[in-house]
């Protein structure tokens, strides 16, 4: 029964080797039944091992886009290719095989309240590597918790820890299966500046250690400059006809140097918020 996680992973998810890019979003539009179009012609790519940020103010559709990328919502039109597979054509075991190669860090953590911290991290390992030695899987879960500095809290329940600790456990869980692609929804929301920096640095260190690409949704400008290789900015509620559309794509320096009024307004308000903290 014993064996390495890597061996088991190669048997579990028999998929073609990831081709460049790991994620392609091609002209995605989302219109809800009430007629509101929240995403309009969104296109971008995420390359292997890069951290790609989705930026934007309120109402720009960041969360909707993330829900589409993780397969919870379907786009109205457009295509999403994730790890070489067309997401819209995936069902059942094939969709599960993609999920196994992706990790997700939710804004609130979304830890299972009835499980201890180590059991939360152990859960995806136990469910997807059933033929493996249970002790090996449990040790792997403890190792992941140790990587986020919470091994001594392993037996606690999520209700007994702080918001920042929950995010760290959620990160450990997202990385439990050594994914190729990690999604993160506002990973530093609700945290103080010190904890924000800590989570950002931990996120970058751990995703790069396993060679994963990351797609991070955030409106935190300091986090953006700290973690992003490249980014896309979407228009928000205040941007009129540009709401839900791509305003700009590029690396952080491009955004800093941009003269686009929406970009300048977004960064100006974000920097003033940072100064006032």
């Amino acid at each position: 029964m014993a064996g390495t996680i890597a061996e088991a992973k190669s048997k579990l998810a028999p998929m073609p080797e990831a081709v460049e890019p790991v994620l392609e979003v091609i002209n995605v539009t989302k219109t809800f039944p009430n007629g509101k179009t929240v995403l309009n012609g969104i296109s971008f790519q995420v390359l292997p091992e890069e951290t790609f940020v989705i930026l934007g103010g309120s109402g720009c559709g960041k969360s909707t886009l993330l829900n589409i990328l993780i397969g919870v919502l379907e786009p109205t039109s457009g295509q999403i290719r994730i790890l070489g597979e067309d997401l819209r054509s995936l069902r059942g075991d094939r969709l599960k095989a993609v999920h196994v190669r992706c990790g997700m860090l939710f804004q609130s953590g979304a830890l299972i309240e009835s499980l201890s911290l180590v059991d939360n991290v152990h859960l995806p390992l136990r469910e997807h590597y059933r033929g493996m030695d249970p002790d090996v899987l449990f040790e792997t879960a403890r190792l992941k918790l140790r990587m986020v500095g919470l091994e001594e809290h392993a037996a606690k329940r999520p209700s007994g820890i702080s918001g920042g600790m929950k995010k760290r456990v959620a990160l450990a869980r997202a990385l439990a299966l050594d994914p190729d692609l990690v999604f993160a929804d506002e990973p530093t929301s609700g945290l103080d500046p010190v904890s924000t920096r800590e989570i950002d640095e931990m996120f970058i260190r751990l995703t790069r250690r396993i060679g994963a690409a990351a797609v991070v949704v955030t409106h935190d400008i300091s986090s953006f400059f700290r973690i992003a290789h490249r980014a896309v900015m979407l228009g928000g509620e205040r941007d009129g006809d540009l709401q839900g559309q791509v305003i700009m794509q590029g690396c952080p320096e491009d955004f800093r140097a941009s003269q686009h009024p929406v970009v300048r307004r977004f960064f100006a308000s974000g920097e003033s918020e940072t100064r006032n903290r």
């Binding site: 999920h99 830890l111 309240e113 997807h128």
Partner: peptide, 20 residues
């Protein structure tokens, strides 16, 4: 109450994204 609270706190969504 348990299932409802799991929906609201995105635990069910988390299970889905873990392929469970």
């Amino acid at each position: 109450a348990e299932l409802g609270s799991m929906q609201v706190s995105e635990e069910i969504k988390a299970l889905f994204t873990m392929g469970i």
